[in-house]
Amino acid sequence: MLKLKNINKTYQTDKIETIALNDINLTVNKGEFISIMGPSGCGKSTLLNIIGLLDKPSSGEISISDQQITSYQDKVVASLRNKKIGFIFQSFHLINDLRVIDNVELPLLYRDISAKERRSLALAALERVGLSARTTHFPSQLSGGQQQRVAIARAIVGKPALLLADEPTGNLDSHMGNEIMKILESLHQDDGTTIVMVTHDEEEAKRTQRIVRVYDGQLVAATEQPLHLDATA
């Protein structure tokens, strides 16, 4: 599903070269749910951005759904992000001036599908996260947990092959965080969605199949979890 080979990322200023990622090799199988952990500033978000084609590696190769990314031309990566990747962010990133249903429809605006089909897919996604009754609300009228569910609905509405979650529970209390984890687990278990999640929470990480640890821009360990979930489901 996802293959990173010798990925390096450096940030260059006039005098200093900062190595953000150093020779990262990672394979995520189809239907796998993994978590990336590490201290702040270790490069895990950079890694997630590179996986999500939001940033370009300085060197190395990436393959998503067996398709190697050879061009970072805007139209090419935009189309790949739109069709193959779903994003969930820590701070939800909902557009406050759009109703819930319109927020969920956003990724579909960049596909060639009818308004009727967009609406139908968005309603189905909202139903999947249990927010069918909130379609006409604005984000500011929802709790943090509900907002993150809207963000999850937006991430899954286009049926992406890969779901990337950047600390999805980071802005939520433990109760709401647990609700979000349950939805992610359900997406993985019931729909077979491949999920890569960055987290600081050891307990949440333990609920995934594999923990990948990053330290100073390098993968230092990958821990297989006791299989409470079936990785090939």
């Binding site: 939001l54 805007d74 935009a78 189309s79 992000r81 739109n82 990133h93 956003l106 960049y110 596909r111």
Partner: peptide, 11 residues
């Protein structure tokens, strides 16, 4: 956000 969701620079 829009670019992350698949919007191209042109759009």
């Amino acid at each position: 956000l829009r670019r992350a969701l698949g919007a191209s620079e042109g759009s």
